Amino acid sequence: MLREARIRAKWHLFLLSRLRDYAQLLKPNLSIMVVFSSVVGYLLAPGVQFNWLNVVILFVGGVLVTGAANTINQILERHSDAFMKRTMSRPMPDGRMGTGEAWALAVVAGVSGVWLLGHFFNPLAGLLSLISLLLYAFAYTPMKKIHPVAVLIGAIPGALPPLIGWVAATGSLGIGGWILFMIQFFWQFPHFWAIAWVGYEDYLKAGIRMLPSNQGRTRFTGLQCMFYSIVLVPMAIMPRMVGITGNVGMWVTMACGVFYFIASVYFYIHNDHKSAKRVMFSSFIYLPVVLLALLFDKL
């Protein structure tokens, strides 16, 4: 009896450890943040009423697709992850999991997520989610070690979630969905570059090139952040123009753009760790506030 209890305890610990490893691969916290914009895109579509079942299916499908992309990202970067402090304890660089098991998880999650979106909503939503997965995993991920244009490539799958949500609701690539795509597209550049600036040494060790200048931590990064963030200010008018949201949503979105731009200006002037983190945290504030403002003021 004692021996059986010990075996059961060992299996229990093993399963808990494996679940933690799977969670590290799928990155559910990051996936939830990404899928949140997809749900908002769905709810912002004209004529859509809140339905718990549809929202849950969209949410789960999006988390699975995003989790699959994150897993493939870690498979392809398992060797470089071993050189970075924040990633060296992941399952593969730490030796706790082989690539075969990780690929199986990625395939099951990816196929399940694409099927859910394509079956319960429409084929176009499933196709867009598949394109997003493939772009992130097989274009953005390897390009990070080749050229800073990886940020541009990564911004495409990063901006697709609200468009996928819109397509899931309407079945078509409407102007409203493209506007949400563009807002999230431009938002990502200062977000990516601020993170890359803060973690520059780690990225350098791993051979990952994310900053827009080959010279590294120059003011050019702050200048680029200013350019992409200022675009978001006039872009705040577009959701109001096409009738997605009202005046409150427009003004909140515009104010958030100004807030993001000011953080970028501060980053350009000071070009230090503190100002880079300010842009990073501003990006964390900008997107959820804008999406919620647009949704709560939906026309």
Rank of each mutant, 00 (worst) to 15 (best):
M1T: 03
R3K: 07
E4P: 10
R8W: 10
K10G: 01
L15I: 15
S17V: 03
L19C: 04
L19I: 13
L25T: 14
N29G: 15
S31Y: 02
M33V: 10
V35D: 09
F36V: 05
V40D: 02
Y42N: 07
L43H: 11
L43I: 10
P46Q: 06
V48H: 00
I57P: 08
V65W: 15
E77M: 02
D81E: 03
D81T: 02
T87P: 05
T87A: 07
S89A: 10
M92D: 11
P93N: 06
D94R: 10
T99S: 13
W103Q: 06
P123N: 08
A125C: 06
A125G: 11
L127R: 07
L128M: 15
L130M: 13
I131R: 04
L134H: 14
L135P: 02
K144D: 06
H147N: 13
V149K: 05
V151S: 04
G154F: 00
A155P: 02
G158F: 04
P161A: 06
W166L: 01
S172C: 05
W178N: 01
L180V: 14
I183L: 12
F185C: 00
F186M: 06
F186G: 01
W187N: 05
W187T: 09
P190H: 04
W193F: 01
A194H: 09
W197C: 00
V198K: 14
G199T: 07
Y200E: 03
D202T: 06
D202V: 08
K205W: 06
G207K: 08
R209P: 08
L211W: 11
L211C: 07
P212M: 09
S213E: 10
N214M: 14
G216F: 11
G216R: 09
T218W: 05
T218V: 08
R219K: 13
F220T: 13
F220S: 03
G222T: 15
Q224L: 07
Q224K: 04
C225Y: 02
F227V: 11
S229C: 02
P234V: 00
P234E: 02
P234C: 03
I237D: 08
R240Q: 07
G243M: 12
I244Q: 04
N247Q: 07
F259I: 03
F259N: 06
Y260F: 12
F261T: 15
A263K: 02
V265E: 04
I269H: 09
K274W: 05
A276T: 10
R278S: 03
F281C: 01
Y286K: 11
V289S: 00
L292I: 11
L299R: 10
